[in-house]
Design a binder for these strands. Structure first.
Lengths: 192, 192
DNA sequence: CGCAATCCATACTCAAGCGTATGGTATCCT
DNA sequence: AGGATACCATACGCTTGAGTATGGATTGCG
């Protein structure tokens, strides 16, 4: 029980460092990922860090891969439980729209794309998700050629939305307005 | 001996530094904006820089504001020359899609949103452009409530596209596929 | 011409952050 | 128990890049 809660572990594992790194990234961006700062956060010093990782970049790499694998089974497995392909897409939109936490890391990585290490990870993840959307749109009745483009458009809209409303705090949209936006998006992007 | 490719001013102005900064940003991102590096690029040293600017952040600030003002009259004035509101939007899409250079800086800033200084600038620019789109969609026949959301969706799609295809080099889309994507986007987002 | 004002170079200081060296303490295993 | 292994602290070196001090060069202008 106290294995993964707050309670001060006496010793740390590499995974602990990776998780802490992801939290820090979500909060303050990739640029804030410094080993001494992280160590302070975990109540230890550099000495510990350099036992687990050879370099700072190694940590970032490991953390990113950890996030990538974690996010793999997240949305996709959840959405495949919806049998009817017609309902699947709008339902996916609504669910994604109403979660919050999972998007934080993604948004943080999105606004840190000038760090070369995150580019390939984001490329892979985005690629997979777009392909997933492509299939979904085909199953929803779109001809293949259109399904690809609609998937691109949809995922681009998702990415852009995160940037505009998460990172930039464009005029804080209200809760009702947000719901209206989501429904508008569904109506516009999903074939009747 | 000193006859380089560029006009080679003998002395530099603050504006020269700002322009050079924007070029550097477009090429290598905000993170690469260092005063000694930039000085080398201009064939001078730090001594020059710190005469024109009090600090590195002052340069970034000035460069961003310069970019913001420059981009102001760029797209908007050009598009207002198209009288028919129905043709205006698809035409805007096509033009924007076929330019390249103006998007480089925007994309570079987009992937550097973890630098606090660029956030307010991008917020202002994005806000203004979205409002512009809102008006355009209203003039194209959408009811006001929908026009706002369609504008948000459209601009988000633009931002996301830049991120996915510019920054991440998602499977380098071909020229014909790109045109098809643009037309698909027009067909999907612009009311008939 | 000659003196200001403007622009630039050189040579520093200083702080941040990564990485290393080395020794200490806890934990496991037999 | 007691050594081996895993984890951590302290202290240092090194590099990068920002900012300062100061004097030299160039230009505008009276």
């Amino acid at each position: 029980m106290n294995a993964s809660s707050k309670p001060e572990r006496t010793r740390l594992s590499a995974e602990d460092w990776e998780d802490a790194a992801l939290v820090l990234i979500a909060e303050q961006g990739v640029g804030a990922l410094a080993v001494e700062a992280l160590a302070r956060r975990l109540g230890v010093t550099k000495g510990s860090f350099y036992w687990h990782f050879r370099t700072r970049e190694a940590l970032l790499q490991a953390a990113l891969e950890r996030w990538e694998q974690y996010g793999e089974r997240e949305v996709i497995s959840q959405i495949e439980s919806i049998p009817d392909p017609r309902v699947r897409l709008p339902e996916l939109f609504r669910r994604v729209a109403h979660e919050l936490q999972p998007h934080r890391v993604y948004a943080a990585l999105l606004k840190a794309l000038d760090h070369p290490q995150v580019v390939p990870v984001m490329a892979r993840v985005s690629q997979r998700r777009t392909e997933f959307l492509t299939v979904a749109f085909r199953e929803a009745g779109l001809p293949p050629a259109e399904a690809v483009n609609r998937a691109r458009l949809t995922y681009a809209a998702y990415v852009g939305f995160l940037q505009l409303n998460f990172t930039l705090g464009l005029p804080r949209i209200s809760h009702e307005d947000f719901d209206a936006y989501v429904e508008h998006m569904i109506a516009t992007l999903i074939p009747a």
